[in-house]
Amino acid sequence: MASTACFMIVSKNDIPIYEAEVGSVPKKEDAAHQHQFILHAALDIVQDMAWTTSAMFLKAIDRFNDLVVSVYVTAGHTRLMLLHDSRNDDGIKSFFQEVHELYIKTLLNPLYLPGSRITSSHFDTKVRALARKYL
């Protein structure tokens, strides 16, 4: 498991709809905004990269100091972004694929409005479990 990792789902309107600090390092007070800044800035790169490949998993596309941003872009242009500090491409890919599946399940919920914040605690629990498993 990565010592620092921040997972975030960004809707196609660039609005974060889900965020979770999944690292094993105890959360620092100022880390939250720094992670948001890095991921937010990485969107610029995603914007360029997403159209150059047909793969959903874009691998590590951006880095800030020792933190790496890996991104997975769904067909609906929802971006699953992971900020991490350890290189484990296979694990990250599996993680993204499983979370994508979870996200699709959430979308299938007729009460969930696509593009709105995901507040389901079940989703949260699952994502954290997957993070423990793969990262």
Binding site: F37, H40, A41, I45, D48
Partner: peptide, 17 residues
Amino acid sequence: FLLSTPTMLRKYGFHLV
């Protein structure tokens, strides 16, 4: 970042911060 094409506004903001 601001001058680059396409404009990378988010990077611009981040680095300014």
